[in-house]
Amino acid sequence: MENKKEIRKQMKAYRAGLKTEKKKQMDQAILTHFFEIERVQNAQHFFVYTSFGTEIDTISLIKMLWKEGRHVYVPKVNGREMDFYEITSMQDLKKGYRDILEPIDTLLPVHGISGIMVMPGLAFDRMGHRIGYGGGFYDRYIASQKNSLYKVAFAYYKQVFSKITVQEHDQTADCIVTECETIMQDT
């Protein structure tokens, strides 16, 4: 299996090569599949990354969740750690770490809330293993949590491999949602 660095490079190039209209269609299909998951339908609390660059659009997801009266928490990087903060409008966000939208400074982090976490990543395998961007923020955050988070990864079908090499500290997704299918782990 290729190393993580090479896989990251390949997957960034793949996403960058997607045509705008095709990407929009694929993103919409992923959101449709996401809302078909029973756990998602019944959940009230969502921990969602704010999409950046060529990532699957989660800003639309955040707005959809607000319309349904659900709680949305987004991450903010603080040094080597990451915390989640509840946001109730787009005005609660500003550019932060690597110019990614993060909660404004007046908001307080939340702790001990169970719910659905939507995880970013560059590559995944069918067992839920993931290759992120290399910062380890999600791995450390999930490992530190005592609350129950059902971890859903958004990925394009071509980002899902049969097997990727992982390390002991790497956190897995409970479910991977692509434009073609939903891959559930036995949990």
Results as ranks from 00 to 15, higher is better:
M117K: 02
T54Y: 11
E2Y: 14
M127P: 00
F52N: 11
S89H: 09
V72F: 04
S51W: 00
G53L: 08
S51L: 05
V152Q: 03
D99G: 06
Q44P: 00
P120C: 08
C180E: 14
R39L: 08
V110C: 14
D27S: 05
Q159Y: 10
H33E: 06
Y97K: 03
G132D: 03
K163C: 15
L122H: 01
T88M: 11
D57G: 04
D83K: 11
M64Q: 09
V177S: 01
L101P: 00
E2F: 15
I37W: 01
Y138W: 06
D174Y: 02
F137Y: 14
Q185F: 08
Y14S: 02
T58G: 06
Q167Y: 11
I37D: 02
D105K: 13
Q44V: 08
D99I: 06
T88F: 07
L108K: 15
K76V: 03
Y150W: 11
T187D: 10
V118L: 05
T182A: 06
F161R: 12
Q10S: 15
T88V: 14
K19V: 11
I142A: 08
G17E: 07
N147A: 15
T50G: 02
S162V: 11
K19E: 14
P120E: 02
K94F: 07
R70Q: 08
I62C: 02
Q91F: 10
L18D: 04
S148I: 10
K76S: 07
D83G: 04
F34W: 02
D170S: 09
E2T: 12
K9Y: 08
S60P: 02
K163D: 14
D99W: 07
S144F: 05
G136T: 03
G128L: 01
M117F: 05
A173F: 01
S114T: 10
E86D: 10
E86Q: 15
M64V: 03
A123Y: 01
N78G: 06
M11H: 05
V110H: 09
D92P: 02
C175V: 07
Y138P: 00
R80K: 15
Y73E: 03
I183S: 02
S89D: 12
V166A: 13
S114R: 05
E181Y: 03
Y156I: 04
N147M: 13
K24N: 10
F46I: 07
A155L: 10
S51Y: 01
A43D: 00
H45E: 09
